[in-house]
Nucleic acid binder design. Structure first.
Lengths: 332, 332
DNA sequence: TTGAAAGCGCTAACAA
DNA sequence: TTGTTAGCGCTTTCAA
């Protein structure tokens, strides 16, 4: 391996000078700069970032801990994070916690051990291990989900408002017995979206029937079962469904299709969060779209700021959602 | 920051002993082991991986350079890589090259600078920069796409056979003027899938009409245009389409739908690589499915082996594809 | 403007 | 079995 000393010898300067040139310090004689650059080229030298990081006690690596890499919501978000990171000179280590608090803890450990410059996390549980990060002064940004265990920079969407929008839209379309399949109780998005749903019902003067609510797991199989149990319920079945995330939409729609239930004639449907290629699905899906890419971008920008200025007060950014009306909610 | 010396002082042993305990060396008195562990707990000590990596001149980080994080094919693959990596104690830095050779080069630079333990790459161009990795003795595994510039471990699918399967299936279904929308010429998958398509035509004694072939960019917008140009062609238009990747399928189907072309009645359709929720799309899509997760797993396992045994001869693993017959290719 | 020298936190060779 | 010591490759005082 070629080191900075090899370059120094070749250029007939000291290692300190090579370091200065490499880091673009202005205080070096142009003649020496040229000599150093020539030596770097001829030796094919690359600086060892590990040694550099140790010496400077900081790295240019971020951790991005997401809860499901199979969910296009998170990959769109990751793209937003990555683009900003790259522009700022950071690299991103993507960690998939799989909604598993144990895996999440493990990754938090890696972030700590590797002295990463910061973390963007979509907490899958109560997020108690996030405290370790904060104690270690690692900059943290929460994304998509609220972090109860600590106050940190957060980027969220207006879940309650979006859910209310979706539900009101179903009501305006003429549906009356509207079911809600939401996510796990410990996730802020699940409870907020449920609240928005309830608020829309209340605003329209419709009764709140708890038997129309299901807490699922934000995954396809769970949503499929939840939909089945709604269709099979003793009391009259729902005439519409509000699904609280994209995979819930897929699972529930799958169930409806396989049962031969006609959407939107027999059952109306609105989902929270778009799915890719929603336009190819029949019937096309009415959804509340989230600005996924912007979510990632914003989180990344907050992290950049936080790293620069660790003591600034935590920011809380809430982005808007938009209702996309398509066929699944058009009552004939 | 608490260091190994703080622990040593607290446990009244030397730093070397702490290091031995931390690394599970057997040669330490159980009494001291207990004292060290107690000190670690009480101080909340975590070892600094940067210092460790420098000293050992190796890291536990892999680079995974993929060409489109927005493509579910690559995220499924990433998941396979990540699961194996985690089990083996490695972390994965996900790098999205966006089919952009310049970005790819930049990431290869990061891999080199950070002294990563290895790389799994789906090369987006000619992959000439991969040579830098090889010169630096960084273990490399090529995935999905062949690497012409060097001989390395590779994990591929039987593109030619899969494409032949898809095309033959269309022929058997009664279609005769079958078009092919493939990818960029410099990608091995694009040329191999085109070759399989041609072989199927030849095997069936059908003429090879070059005006039915389009080289697109493996993206939706490009595929949409390619499909348009096929529909608008002077000579008789195709009665079926073979789309060479998943986003090509989406773009081409989108075009057909928006033009009001009836699938599979007027035009039959088969795509290479599944898309998620293909079952919700109408008509449901016939596809040649790739074992995406296994692709990632296999690449990761090869990387583990390569790291252990750098001089073993490069392996080349080819995984099978499977035809999923659905509605888009059923001629009434 | 340049160089000498110290040291980031850890592991491993060597000595005891 | 344990401790002493050197050094991984770099940046950054400090002195010249």
């Amino acid at each position: 391996m070629t080191t900075i000393y090899d370059v120094a010898r070749q250029a007939q300067v000291s290692a300190a000078t090579v370091s200065r040139v490499l880091n673009g310090r202005a205080t070096v004689d142009p003649v020496l700069v040229e000599r150093v650059q020539e030596a770097v080229r001829s030796l094919g030298y690359r600086r060892n970032a590990v040694a550099r990081n140790l010496r400077r006690s900081r790295t240019m690596l971020w951790g991005l801990i997401i809860s499901d890499i199979g969910n296009p919501f998170f990959t769109a978000l990751a793209r937003g994070v990555e683009d900003v990171a790259q522009a700022e000179g950071y690299s991103v280590a993507l960690c998939n916690s799989d909604e598993n608090p144990a895996k999440e803890s493990q990754y938090i450990g890696v972030v700590l051990d590797e002295q990463m410059a910061g973390v963007i996390i979509s907490p899958s549980g109560r997020g108690r291990d996030v405290r370790l990060l904060i104690e270690a002064n690692t900059p943290v940004v929460a994304i998509d989900r609220e972090l109860r265990a600590a106050t940190v920079d957060s980027v969220l969407v207006d879940n309650e408002h979006g859910a209310e929008l979706a539900t009101s839209h179903l009501i305006e379309s003429g549906y009356r017995r509207i079911a809600c399949i939401t996510g796990p109780k410990q996730l802020s998005t699940a409870t907020q979206r449920l609240r928005g749903y309830k608020r829309a019902l209340a605003a329209a003067g419709l009764p709140m029937d708890e038997s129309l609510v299901r807490y699922s797991d934000y995954r396809e199989a769970g949503a499929f079962e939840a939909m089945e149990s709604l269709l099979d319920s003793e009391t009259a079945r729902p005439d519409a469904v509000f699904a609280a995330n994209n995979l819930t939409t897929v699972g529930a729609m799958d169930c409806l299709v396989s049962r031969g239930v006609k959407v939107p004639v027999e059952v109306g449907f609105v989902g929270f969060d778009d799915i890719p290629w929603a336009h190819l699905v029949r019937p096309s899906l009415t959804t509340v779209a989230q600005p996924t890419y912007e979510l990632g971008q914003t989180a990344a920008r907050l992290l950049v700021e936080r790293i620069k200025e660790p003591s600034r007060p935590p920011a809380r950014v809430v982005l808007r959602t938009v209702l996309h009306e398509r066929d699944s909610s058009r009552r004939p």
